[in-house]
């Protein structure tokens, strides 16, 4: 029962998540997830660091949600340094249905009706790709 509730909660969380990410180990070195603070740089490789893997993260939200996701991915690879190689925004047009309700009855017989119509929106996706490094002792 607890497992079922956990699975349901995970599914709901995933469905509502605005940040998506993935990570891929590229080194034969396998480390346990790192528990300390992960440094982040967008301009410099770490001196003397060992590259552990690569990551990608995208969000419909803002950079303050993207970077914590990057940190989580890097820590999951055992890294303590996230080197973001590229970060930028892509724009896409999407069509989505919008449902609204309105009063459609009479004074004596009030009713509420709903209508659905399509709207076009330009959606911005912020994306970061980079590499995970381990700089400190292993």
């Amino acid at each position: 029962m607890i497992a079922l509730a956990f699975a349901l909660a995970s599914t709901l969380t995933a469905a509502c998540a605005t940040v998506r990410s993935s990570a891929l180990p590229t080194s034969s070195l396998r480390l346990a997830p790192y528990r300390g603070a992960v440094a982040v740089s967008l301009t410099r490789d770490p001196p003397g660091g060992v590259e552990l893997g690569r990551f990608e993260a995208t969000t419909y939200s803002t950079v303050d949600e993207l970077i914590p996701e990057v940190i989580e991915r890097v820590a999951g690879l055992g890294g303590d340094f996230a080197r973001v190689d590229e970060i930028g925004t892509r724009f896409n047009w999407v069509t989505r249905p919008v449902t609204s309700s309105y009063n459609c009855g009479s004074f004596r017989y009030p009713m509420t009706c709903t209508r659905t119509y399509m709207v076009n929106e330009e959606v911005a996706t912020l994306r970061a790709v980079g590499r995970a490094f381990r700089v400190g002792p292993r």
């Binding site: 967008l42 301009t43 970060i87 925004t89 724009f91 330009e122």
Partner: peptide, 18 residues
């Protein structure tokens, strides 16, 4: 601000940097 990048959409413009 370093490594600033500007991406242009049809209805909005986004910039990110360090």
């Amino acid at each position: 601000v370093l490594a600033a990048r500007v991406d242009v959409g049809s209805t909005q413009v986004a910039a990110v940097g360090v």
